[in-house]
């Protein structure tokens, strides 16, 4: 679905590349998580995939049109001067849907993420979790086949985060979305993914390891954490990560240790 070949990316000519010779393949319908030390270039990689950042070398290719890729950002910045409805309608309007029609559809997507009747509000009138839901509605309204997410729930409290994750996963399963998610939460990565990729330290970062999650989907997001396979993988992944971040490295892992 998504193929990255020997991707290199430097900020400015002559600078040390953040990413170098990075390759990965994402199968259709696969849920892949990307973990790695803080500052190694995970966000940069996602930005290169969406075209927000131009690679210096290598290629990113998609089996679908770029219109079918949605990007859920880490922060929940919405256009503060547009109503919640118009924020969701924007993507549809950009595709030529007429204003009235786009707004009607936007209301439908808001209802789908549990924000029925919130269309007339300004973004500042919503809580952090609600703004995240609006951002999800913005993505879903594009009817994407591929969903890219950059630490989507990092700023939310545990309860909001749990329900949002469940809702999002039900969308992923229903629409059979192909997902690439950056996270710093090792448990979250294992619980949601088919495969976890470990990215090495930057600069010149690349993929250092692939970990297949031997559990079928859809999963019970709470129950899965007690499965032996889950705990074994968590241990493997953690030791691989510690090795990568390393005691001699000055970068500290921004990872959550699995409670043992």
């Amino acid at each position: 679905m998504l193929h990255i070949r020997e991707l290199s990316l430097a900020f400015g000519k002559g600078a040390v590349p953040v990413l170098e010779g990075l390759s990965l393949d994402l199968q259709a319908g696969e849920f892949m998580s990307l973990i790695g030390p803080s500052g190694c270039g995970k966000s940069t990689l996602l930005r290169a995939i969406t075209g927000l950042q131009k690679p210096s070398a290598g290629a990113v290719s998609l089996d679908v049109s770029p219109d079918e890729v949605a990007f859920l950002f880490q922060d929940d910045a919405l256009l503060p001067w547009r109503s919640v409805r118009d924020n969701v309608a924007l993507g549809l309007r950009n595709r030529g849907t007429r204003k009235a029609q786009a707004r009607r559809e936007a209301d439908g997507w808001l209802a789908a993420v549990g924000l029925e009747g919130y269309g007339d509000r300004w973004p500042r009138q919503l809580s952090g979790g609600q703004r995240k839901r609006v951002a999800i509605a913005q993505c879903l309204a594009l009817r994407p086949r591929v969903l890219l997410m950059d630490e989507p729930f990092a700023s939310l409290d545990a309860i909001v985060r749990h329900y949002l994750t469940e809702d999002l996963m039900s969308w992923v399963e229903r629409e059979n979305l192909t997902v690439l998610m950056v996270t710093h939460d090792l448990e979250e990565a294992i619980a949601l993914s088919d495969r976890v990729l470990l990215m090495g330290n930057g600069p010149r970062a690349r993929i250092k390891g692939h970990f297949q999650v031997p559990l079928s989907r859809p999963r019970d997001l709470v129950g899965v954490r007690t499965e032996p396979a889950f705990r074994d993988l968590a241990r493997d992944l953690w030791s691989a990560l510690s090795e990568e971040v390393g005691p001699m490295s000055s970068t500290r892992p921004d990872l959550k240790v699995v409670n043992e």
């Binding site: 969406t50 927000l52 910045a77 256009l79 924007l90 594009l142």
Partner: peptide, 26 residues
């Protein structure tokens, strides 16, 4: 201008004109 908003509009498929209308003018 808030670059996050610029990127948001771009990933939602907005071109230059949309950016001016949705981000720069407001």
């Amino acid at each position: 201008v808030d670059q996050r908003l610029v990127e948001r509009v771009r990933t939602l498929g907005g071109g230059r004109l949309v950016l001016v209308r949705e981000v720069y003018i407001p």
